[in-house]
């Protein structure tokens, strides 16, 4: 399996459904992999897999929603599309809250399904891109010294150099020096960008 290449993973205990789904997706040129049970999928899935997941809600042993939980626990970020013959409002709400892309009822219109798949794939791509970016960001953040990190928090909190210096017990000058170095390490050109970046990284402000 080529991890780089995105695929659609179908999990359904009903073979007829699997076969038909595979055929349909293949017909639009998608790569498909089918699994007869949630367990089977979990056994094989890795975080590198990209693409999306089509899951039946009701399956013996482990149902769709449980699979969804399991994925998030294992930090497998594949977007999930629920497909079910009998769906209830609570189930769908739970699914959506847990981050499902869509909740479809069988028999499903092909176009509806394909749209959902595309959306899911998009999301996955986006997610992965994000992930890569985040990785870089984190690498760069890692290069900051503790002191720089500290200053960073002041800067993104909107503190003036003068204030930061006072609070940190250093001179304005030093702060300015730190600021420049931070900007350089993080390859930011503006304060706004720095703030955005910090926010993305999830660095907390002082307030």
């Amino acid at each position: 399996m080529n991890p780089a290449r995105p695929a659609v993973y179908v999990v359904d205990d009903d073979s007829s459904v699997r076969v038909a789904m595979e055929r349909l997706l293949k017909s639009v040129g998608l790569t498909v992999k089918t699994f007869a049970s949630a367990g089977e999928f979990l056994d094989q899935a890795t975080p590198e897999w990209s693409g999306c997941l089509i899951v039946d809600l009701r399956m013996p042993e482990m149902g769709g929603l449980d699979l969804q939980d399991q994925l998030s626990a294992r930090q497998v970020g594949l977007p999930v599309i629920f497909l079910t013959g009998y769906g209830t409002v609570p189930a769908s709400v739970r699914a959506m809250k847990a981050g499902a892309v869509d909740f479809l009822e069988k028999p499903v219109d092909d176009q509806t399904l394909l749209d959902a798949v595309h959306k899911a794939l998009e999301r996955d791509r986006g997610a992965r891109r994000n992930q890569a970016e985040m990785q870089v960001l984190h690498q760069r953040l890692a290069t900051l010294t503790p002191r720089e990190y500290e200053v960073l928090t002041f800067i993104i909190s909107g503190r003036l150099n003068k204030q930061a210096a006072a609070e940190l017990g250093t001179t304005e000058k030093t702060i300015k020096v730190h600021r420049a170095r931070i900007m350089e390490k993080l390859q930011c050109t503006s304060l706004a960008e720095l703030v955005r970046l910090a926010e993305k990284a999830g660095i907390k402000t002082l307030d």
Binding site: R23, R58, K106
Partner: peptide
């Protein structure tokens, strides 16, 4: 047992739909 029944019927129905649609595309 409506759920079960619906399910029982839906599965093949769904498959039929998908198969047909796939066939059309092919």
């Amino acid at each position: 047992l409506t759920a079960s029944l619906a399910h029982e019927v839906n599965q093949p129905l769904n498959a039929v739909m998908n198969n047909a649609q796939a066939a059309l595309r092919f």
